[in-house]
Every structure is written in structure tokens, then in C-alpha cells.
Nucleic acid binder design. Sequence first.
DNA 1: CGGTATCCTAGCCGATACTG
DNA 2: CAGTATCGGCTAGGATACCG
Lengths: 126, 126
Amino acid sequence: MVTKQFGDSPEEADLRRADSLAREIFSDIANKWALLIIEALGERTLRFSELRDEVEGVSHKMLTQNLRMLERNGMVERTVHPTVPPRVEYTLTEPGRALRKAVDVMCDWTHRYLGHIETARSRFDS
Amino acid sequence: MVTKQFGDSPEEADLRRADSLAREIFSDIANKWALLIIEALGERTLRFSELRDEVEGVSHKMLTQNLRMLERNGMVERTVHPTVPPRVEYTLTEPGRALRKAVDVMCDWTHRYLGHIETARSRFDS
DNA sequence: CGGTATCCTAGCCGATACTG
DNA sequence: CAGTATCGGCTAGGATACCG
């Protein structure tokens, strides 16, 4: 992940392209709301409004914005049911479910080390 | 990770506290620079200036800021060698190395699905 | 209900300069 | 070399209002 240095020969041009794409994607997903949305979806299919309730604290705007981004990157699938009122459902795709594994590890980590962190903090803050 | 709902009995007070702490920590680490720094450190010990070269694109300010945060949360250890010029080294702690595993999974994911994502994007952008 | 657009503000973050 | 402080632009992101 850490960035490599490329020369300027033609063959290295698309290595550099792939690398910058990787960094771009990493920036996309290394964000609080994106990760929480992915975690909230899990194995379920959820409507927009269900997601908004599930991911506490997320605003309407941030939710749509991140969902668009996740859809664009092929991590979630969006299905619109043409009813009134409209019903829009979101599901993780296969890549999305793979990413979710990583998010799970992060969540587990957070809970596992809560104690460590709390004591580390009070030591630091003094 | 997804937030739970608590009542307002006393016993539930520290459940709520733990939950909010977990969310706070999650917000801390779900950020581009923090994750890239952790990944850059890996199993190595690096000086400040080495880190700045290693984590491409990071500014002086963001680097110090994130390093403080990571130190405060007990994820990295900071050792100052009292020489002139000063020499400051950073290493992952045990919790930090555990977190790194999660970051590794994310990095692997990014590279593994680069192709998927690229095609998903061009489909979406049309 | 879900999405888009518009405004408006807090704070992120880069640039710069200064200490030990 | 590493860290802190300050200034300023800019954008992330909340609130609100309005469409299909």
C-alpha cells in the first residue's frame, strides 16, 4: 500500500496509474461513515431509511453521498422498486462482503482493546 | 459496532460510556493518514523524517497530529533520543500491531479488487 | 420515501515561521 | 531534526427546502 517510486518509462505508466487508483480507493473507504455503512449492511438488505436508523448519527446527506460512492466502486448494489412511495434497497456485493471482513476485524479490535486504550489515554493526558 | 440503544438505568450508564468510547476510537482510526502511518510502520521502527518520506503526500502537520493521536491511544510508542540533532523513533505497540493486521486486510482487499472497481466505476459513470 | 440542491458554518489542513 | 504556533483558504458536512 505504501507508495512505490516509479520511473517514467511507458511500461511503468500504468503501474503508476494502478497505484494512484489504489490510493484513491483507499481514501474512499478509509472514512468513518463508509465503514459504518458497510458494517451495518452486513449480510442484510436494508432500505435507505433503515440504514439511516442503523448507522447512528449519520445525516441524510452523508448517507446518500457515501452510498453513491460505495455503489460507484461496486461495493453495494442499489435496487429501486418502482412503487409509491418508492422503496430503495441496498445490499453488499461480493467485493463489499469481502471488505466487510476487514471492517469486522477493525471492530473486533476496537472492542478488544478498549481497556488498553482507556488506560493509555489517561496516562498520556497527565 | 453498530450502535445499540440503552435505557437510563445506572448499570447501563457505563455500557453507554463504553459504546461512545468505541465510536470515538473508531472515528480516530477510520482516517486515511492514521491507517497509512500504521501500515508504513509495520514491523519496523522509523524516525519522524523517515515516516514523512514513507507515507507519501502527508504534511508535517498531519503527521505529527496523527502520531500524537496514535500515541495517546497507545497504538504507537514514541522514543526520544536526547542527542543533537534530536532523534525520535516510532514503533507499533502490541495493540498497534494487532490493528495493523486489520489494515493489511484492507490493503490486500484494495489490490485484489482493483479490476472489479475500475469496471464498476466506468459502468456507473455512464 | 428517497434524492437533489442550496446555503452556511466549523474545523481541517497546507504553508510558513519560529523554538530547542 | 522534531515539534509547536499562527494564519488563511477551502471543503466537509449539517440544516433546510423542494422534487418525483
